[in-house]
Design a binder for these strands. Structure first.
Lengths: 235, 235
DNA sequence: TACTGTGAACAATTTCACAGCA
DNA sequence: TGCTGTGAAATTGTTCACAGTA
């Protein structure tokens, strides 16, 4: 039992595990940045709010990465997780919608180091077309299919108004992307075999207000032994 | 039986249920916008990718909202869910960090209709201070405590670089906010009783690449009967 | 000693299936 | 008939506790 390459065919991994895998990765990067070469399931768990057993079980889905008596060598585990997540290589991403949010995504410094490169942006407003933002060229959305194919873009980010999101997603799929991150507050329909994730900013806030409102309710109400903690995803 | 006010003290609701509640709300708003006065658990479920039983069970945590034989009256259920989530009133929000992402958040049109109003923004860069963006005034971050207290801000959004996020969160808590949405890729520590949610853009992309990479692996590999669908949160 | 990996126990969540109301 | 609400069953996920390795 010692380090090894990730199991090639994970057969069926709960989505929650994949979520936590990303968190472990981020945390490991912080540990490395702090100069520590190794860490342990309990340390990792403590920092993220999980039990040590959970951390070990999660990682065990993919292989044997730990060293008994030692813990995990950070760089080793980072490499393994990136391999599992598929970010051991660079992914080409297209952004559709160069509004406020789109521009923010173009300027976001966190993508490149994690393996994502925005190689093209699209907008329907012709005054934006032809410019570059953060050295990403902006194309007429009418050319989406052509450009996405030509540049071999694999992932799409949808940052257009809700009413156009489905149409944009359809075009992205048509053009050959295999995964979509959607920032519009609608539920996209995508064909089987295309992955998608939705990020809805108002919904994130609602998760917080629920916890707050709930706390207020129990407080004024009469001290139920209620304990709803809204520590959803880490961070 | 029939409609009623949400149960006041939900005692203990799984976080996943709260997440879905937000999705039901969004979906119901779309149904209303389409002119339909009622919907059903199966319709709602189909649109979001859940079973009808799940929808009913989720809602049953909070009261009896449905009408046997009819389904759910959309507006009624919308009102009930907003009440449960605490967004039946307006929440005052402070934004810290007026970079690319911060500006996008200031310009985001989706907050107001869902009950969120950004009433103040803060930045350390003094050239930004004193201006308004989207008619939100930008203050020196040194005045965070003072302004947040004075304006009775309840929620904070952290959109500063990772290395400053914890310090900013500490100040927000000090100043009296009860909930935080964090956009920096770090795990914040907040005191018991403060709610937080983390949004990490690179992590969202990783959820997608995992699914894609996984699909590629099984494909080239040898057709395991693997079925990993990355249809995380809806959208 | 300090830690991992893991079967077995436990807990939570989801689905099923059906009674009951409009 | 069409739909909800809900116990009971099935499934999934988490924690415990310990054998085993460095």
């Amino acid at each position: 039992m010692s380090s090894s390459k990730p199991t090639t065919s994970p057969v069926s991994v709960p989505e929650a595990v994949v979520n936590r895998l990303s968190m472990y990765l981020r945390e490991l990067q912080h540990v490395v940045a702090a100069g520590k070469p190794t860490t342990s399931s309990s340390q990792l768990g403590r920092r993220l709010g999980f039990t040590d057993a959970q951390v070990r079980k999660d990682l065990a889905h993919f292989g044997h990465f730990g060293h008994p008596g030692i813990g995990y060598r950070c760089q080793e585990l980072i490499d393994a997780i990136r391999c599992i997540l598929g970010t051991d290589r660079q992914w080409k991403v297209a952004l559709v919608g160069v509004g406020n949010l789109g521009r923010a995504l173009l300027g976001y410094r966190g993508f490149d180091p994690q393996g994502f490169e925005i190689v093209a942006a699209f907008d329907a407003e012709l005054s934006k077309v032809g410019n570059e933002i953060e050295s990403v060229p902006i194309y007429d959305i009418a050319r989406l299919r052509e450009v996405v194919s030509a540049k071999q873009v694999e992932l799409g980010m949808v940052a257009v108004p809700a009413e156009h999101a489905q149409a944009v997603a359809d075009q992205l799929v048509e053009a050959g992307v295999t995964g979509i991150v959607n920032f519009a507050p609608v539920t996209l329909k995508v064909p089987e075999g295309i992955s998608k994730v939705g990020v809805d900013l108002a919904r994130e806030l609602e998760q917080v207000t629920f916890a707050v409102a709930n706390r207020l309710r129990s407080a004024e109400h009469g001290a139920e032994l209620d304990q709803t903690e809204a520590t959803k995803t880490g961070s």
